[in-house]
Simulated scan of single mutants.
Amino acid sequence: MINQKAGSVVFQNVRKTFGAFTAIPDLSLAIEPGTLVTLLGPSGCGKTTTLRMLAGLEHPSAGKILIGGKDVTMLPANERDVSMVFQSYALFPHMNARDNVAYGLDASGLSRKEAREKADEGLALVGLAGMGHRLPAELSGGQQQRVAVARALVLEPQVLLLDEPLSNLDARLRRKVRTDIRELQQRLGFTAVYVTHDQEEALAVSDRIIIMKDGEVAQSGAPRDLYEAPASAFIADFMGEANVIPCEVVGIDGADAEIRIGGFEHRVPAGRATPGAASLAVRPGAIALSEGQGQGLAGRILHSAYLGDHVEYEVETDVGTLFIVDHAVDRILPVASDATLGFRSRGIALIST
């Protein structure tokens, strides 16, 4: 479902400098209405600066920003038809949940009665019906975050902005609230731009992920595409740990490539590979590990750690030390023993280095 109020977002050759420092050199991107798009990347990559420019809290040094087809590049924040959810929640501690949600509505010219009625509707939307009388201190962290989301949604913005919205929650509560946010976005169909440095969070909530590096788009796509077909070693490692292994592409056969790793040959999706030296990104869970010497890449167990539902190994091979996650917890290979490594059909991709 696409909300009729949901707006598109377009950045056209946007540049942002702070004195002599260029935070965003030349950024172009487009976000479709009714989608949840995550800006993901390490600290200092430009994702928060991008969000602040979209919110009107910073202005570009060059380029254009459009929301719903309207040029908002130099408009102040209160004229942009966006709402923002901050990582600190920014709730007023002396106001109950209903009054916190109604705060922006009061400023919009609605009567006090209309604002409170709409605030109650907003609280019901986020699963907090009947809790409007509670002060923030009487709510859990997850409930406070939902109040902050309700406060943003009742203003019916074209775009909802979420800046690290789960960073103050513990791990279990983060899983719960991210599910709530995703379900709410899909049910109501609003456009959302979500900023996080947490890869798992981005995979869980997004229609599309834009990975940023040094103020630029390093790769953009659906979560599954980015995880299973990273374009570079940076993307492969950032989207979940990956072993980057030197290999040789010895031949291309349709959509597959024949690669050689040491003396071991294997077929993988070719992508845009050409014959010659290459690199292979291999997820830790995509390596099949067996005891002793056999058909595959020879290795030697350097370290093992039992972690309940899986065992983590470090294995020395001719192409370097590889990190492996093995769910065969009923047998743990001893340190210093020989092992044979093979590759599963998923979780491996040829990449550019």
Rank of each mutant, 00 (worst) to 15 (best):
G56K: 08
P223F: 13
I287R: 08
E316G: 14
M74E: 13
A119F: 00
P157H: 09
V217Q: 01
L39C: 14
D330R: 14
A231P: 00
G142V: 06
P284M: 04
H303G: 09
P269D: 11
I209H: 15
I24N: 04
H303M: 13
T49W: 04
L322M: 08
K176Y: 10
G292P: 07
A77P: 11
V268M: 03
L36P: 02
E117G: 00
V193G: 09
L125Y: 03
G34Y: 07
R267W: 03
V217K: 05
F343Y: 02
A222C: 00
P246W: 03
A281P: 11
G294K: 06
D99E: 15
R182K: 14
V126M: 01
V329H: 04
G104S: 11
M1A: 05
A55T: 11
A107G: 06
S232W: 03
P269I: 02
C247H: 02
S279M: 12
I245H: 14
L162V: 10
A236V: 06
H94C: 01
C247V: 09
L128M: 00
T17E: 08
P334H: 08
N243I: 05
V282L: 14
A119V: 01
I210M: 00
V335N: 11
G296N: 05
Q144C: 08
I210K: 07
E316F: 15
L160M: 12
L110Y: 15
S279K: 10
I261P: 08
A77T: 06
K64C: 15
A231V: 12
A55L: 10
S43A: 12
P223C: 12
Q199C: 06
P25T: 00
L188S: 04
L226N: 06
K213Q: 15
M95P: 02
Y306P: 03
Q295W: 12
D338F: 09
A6P: 13
L280N: 10
G215M: 04
P269C: 11
A305C: 07
I261V: 15
D225Y: 01
E312G: 13
H327D: 14
L162Q: 11
G240E: 01
R98T: 02
E32M: 09
G276P: 10
S61E: 01
G240Q: 04
P76H: 10
A204V: 05
D207R: 03
G19C: 05
E314R: 09
L153T: 04
A286Q: 08
A30F: 09
L341M: 07
G292S: 09
L57W: 11
L75M: 11
A233E: 15
F11S: 02
L162W: 05
G262W: 12
H197Q: 09
G240D: 05
E32W: 10
A204N: 03
D237T: 13
A129I: 02
P93A: 13
A23H: 10
